[in-house]
Write a protein that binds this DNA or RNA. Structure first.
Lengths: 210, 210
DNA sequence: ACATAAGTTGAGGCCACCGTCAACTTTGCT
DNA sequence: AGCAAAGTTGACGGTGGCCTCAACTTATGT
């Protein structure tokens, strides 16, 4: 790859991160190209579709989330770890409209088929870490036993919507919402749930649809 | 108003209800016109903008929701009443993509400025009914005391997103999600909340933005 | 039956975004 | 320096939804 090409690619990714963060994933790609100081043709040359650009822009996020998960696991109290993880991911969402859009459809740690097996591995690892966070919190006794990893998506989706709606008016109310959610996830609060959790296969279909 | 005009108007509203329910509020208005067996010009002639058509299509919903609220208040147990109301509204959302879209932005009972004062009154009444449902549940002791009417929006928004995402795969999982939420709203589960609730003014701004 | 107001029609202009490609420019190798 | 391959450019055609309006049709009162 020629070095000007490499440089332009990098510029595009940086621009995409900025523009997505401010305007969300549905922004016109011209905006990204302009921000990168590059023509729209170059953008399409490097990234055949929007999805490729999104992937490139958020590739490191999975890694970041995994680090948060590790930090959570390093906390002595299992419930604190669980809460820490959920709060930090929500904070990421609140700070980046693009990431929030992304989370609305596909939960960070989900296993999405990707061309690059390397990224896939990060996702698989994220899934494992989240499983561990939940298992540990179950063992600690404070996380209700019927809560599964698939239920994590409910949290993400909920927060996603609240952030979308309230960001301009009260950028931090999502914390209140999250606190209400967390109060429902603790063993003493638990009542029997009316539906079985989503299965992994069902989650896969949800993500596959887009 | 001429009688053919009246008839076409009615057809359009009926068509809008069907098409919105199936495809959501962002559907092309041509689709509605076609479904109504009427030209696009007639649609615009009768409803200057999409918002007018949406209002007409969902005008009766506020009334429906108010009936649900009254039924909730008629239930002997205050907490059961609260749960009934929230479940029924969620069920409405799950059964109508357009209504779900609507709820994602503007909670049914919110006070939105409307040209027709009559509709406005229904909204105001809905607000009063919801206030009563919550006050009664507070008095009953089972609803956590720090839960306010503005927090209701968190529930609606959450369910909204889950329905959007899971409808095709597991049309009833929103019940599981809702059950998790409800477990967090009960007095024994309550921990102090980190942020004050949204104010009425803030809610008004949220709805005004669209 | 007729006049006239009311209503309908759909082709067409507008816009915003998408994605392409032939002509041009730059890089890096020899 | 010269040259071929790699890369860039931006005008352009395509799509789809929005909304308008001049020509046509229908309802209604007398």
């Amino acid at each position: 790859m020629r070095k000007d090409a490499e440089r332009n690619r990098e510029r595009l990714v940086v621009a995409a991160r900025e523009v997505f963060a401010e305007h969300g994933l549905d922004v016109a790609l011209e905006t990204v190209a302009k921000q990168a100081g590059v023509s729209i043709g170059t953008l399409y040359n490097r990234f055949p579709g929007r999805v490729d650009l999104v992937r490139a822009a958020f590739a490191d996020r999975t890694h970041t989330v995994n680090e948060l998960a590790e930090h959570a696991l390093a906390l002595p109290d299992p419930w604190e770890g669980f809460v820490y993880f959920v709060e930090q991911v929500s904070r990421l969402q609140a700070s980046d409209r693009g990431y929030n859009d992304l989370a609305a459809r596909s939960v960070p740690a989900a296993h999405t088929p990707t061309p690059e097996p390397e990224l896939d591995e990060e996702h698989v690892r994220g899934y494992a870490l989240m499983t561990e966070i939940i298992a540990r919190a179950h063992a600690g006794g404070r996380l209700r036993p019927d809560f599964t990893i698939e239920d994590m998506a409910f949290i993400t989706w909920s927060i996603t919507r609240t952030i979308e709606t309230t960001a301009r008016v009260r950028p931090d109310v999502w914390r209140r919402h999250l606190a209400l959610i967390l109060d429902g996830l603790q063993t003493p609060a638990a009542h029997p749930l009316p539906e079985p959790p989503m299965t992994r296969e069902e989650m896969a279909v949800v993500y596959r649809d887009c």
